[in-house]
Structures are given as C-alpha cells and as structure tokens.
C-alpha cells in the first residue's frame, strides 16, 4: 500500500500539519548548491530547463500546452511544458508522490496509474496528451480514502519489504483483477510481469492478487 501520502514529518506540531516534510526539507537544503551551479552554467535569461517547472501561462513558441483532465475525480486545468510526463506532473507539481519513479523508461512499473480505466506507465505518458482524460492514482484508488481490498491483502500477505514498487503493484493488480487475468498463479505472474519488485516479494504479491480476485472485488 502507499504510505508516502502520509510521509513522516519532521517535528510535527500538535493539531496541524508541519510545514516541513521530508520532501521539502531535502529540496530546501539542496537549493543553495543547486542555484549556484545553475547560475554558473546557464547564466541569466536562459529558458528554464526543467520540464516540470510550474508554467503559469502558455509560451508563444508552442512548447507548452493547456490541459484539463480529471485526477482522482477532481478537475485539473493547467498549463504544462510539453516535455512533462504525467509522472513528473503528479510528483513535482501536484504533490501526489504515491506514484513512484523507478526506471523512468517504462521498464519497472513503479509509476503505474490508470488512464481512462486502463493501467499505463505514467513515465511514458506526456501530460500534454491528457486533455479530457480520467486519471486515477494510488491516492484516488478509493473515493473515501479507505484501503482498497487489494491494499488490505498486501498487508495481510506481507507482500512488500521496502515498499517502493508497492503503489505500482497495487494499481497494476487492481487492473489485472478487473481484466480477469487471475485464473491461476501462473496467469497472475504473467499479467503482473510489468511490475518489478527488487525485494523479491513476488510469491506474496501473487497471493495478495489471487486472494482479492476470489474474495469479492
């Protein structure tokens, strides 16, 4: 299951969320050196090189696009650099870090999300192409924020160690069950082969998918 949406915070204050998460802390401490390097290399007035930078308005050269799509049931309308992947858009701009970046090349499945109800690799999906689409990430798997039966099954089966591949495994597994490719452990293994687990939890992942497929949803 995804635990990243509730990342441990540094010195949380009572009653309200800390302004400093692990993510912003690392980003803030990295900035000083980053700025120095960037200034030295690119000078001023150079076009931003980050494909995920927040683009407020469309650029006249046509290298940005305006997109509007449903993300976990909520409308997102924004201007994106054409180079931005859905994965980077989710993680770097929309703060939905449950979707993981593993290989960034369509080989590991850590970034699996659902677009229009189908499992796809978010790293190979340009955000600019999503106009009119419906996107579901691990954060939006259940409308009420409860655990999905497959997430419960992962806990029951202890189907993870480091957990990095888990959101992708879950999103892929939910689709695999919906597609009906769960007739046998062999079939599950084949249809889940687009999700790599370096900890080697495959046996328990297959059990979790099988348990969920037969146990209701």
């Amino acid at each position: 299951m995804s635990t990243d949406a509730q990342e441990p915070e540094l010195q949380p204050e009572e009653g309200r969320p800390s302004p400093l998460s692990r993510r912003t802390f690392i980003a803030a401490t990295g900035t000083a050196t980053g700025v120095a390097v960037a200034a030295g290399v690119t000078g001023s007035g150079t076009r931003p090189v980050s494909a995920t930078e927040d683009v407020a308005s469309e650029l006249a050269d046509g290298t940005t696009s305006r997109v509007s799509f449903l993300l976990n049931g909520r409308r997102q309308s924004l201007v994106v650099d054409n180079r931005a992947s859905l994965l980077d858009l989710l993680r770097e701009r929309l703060d939905l870090t449950g979707t993981k970046k593993g290989c960034d090349a369509g080989a590991c499945g850590a970034c699996t999300v659902h677009v229009d109800g189908r499992r796809v690799n978010a790293c190979l999906t340009f955000a600019a192409r999503l106009d009119g689409a419906q996107v579901t990430t691990i954060e939006g798997l259940t409308p009420d924020g409860d655990l999905h039966p497959l997430q419960r099954a992962f806990i029951e089966q202890d189907a993870l160690q480091c957990g990095f591949c888990t959101p992708g495994q879950i999103m892929s597994g939910v689709a695999c069950i919906r597609e009906g490719h769960t007739g046998s452990p062999e079939e599950i293994r084949e249809w889940m082969s687009g999700n790599i687990c370096r900890c080697g939890c495959y046996v328990k992942i297959v059990r979790a998918v099988a348990q969920t497929a037969t146990g209701g949803r």
């Binding site: 369509g106 796809v120 690799n121 689709a175």
Partner: peptide
C-alpha cells in the same frame, strides 16, 4: 510482448 501496461498504450 512487453507488459500489460505497455500493451494498453
């Protein structure tokens, strides 16, 4: 060929 995700795309 490929994976279920890639075949969907």
């Amino acid at each position: 060929s490929a994976s279920a995700q890639l075949r969907n795309m």
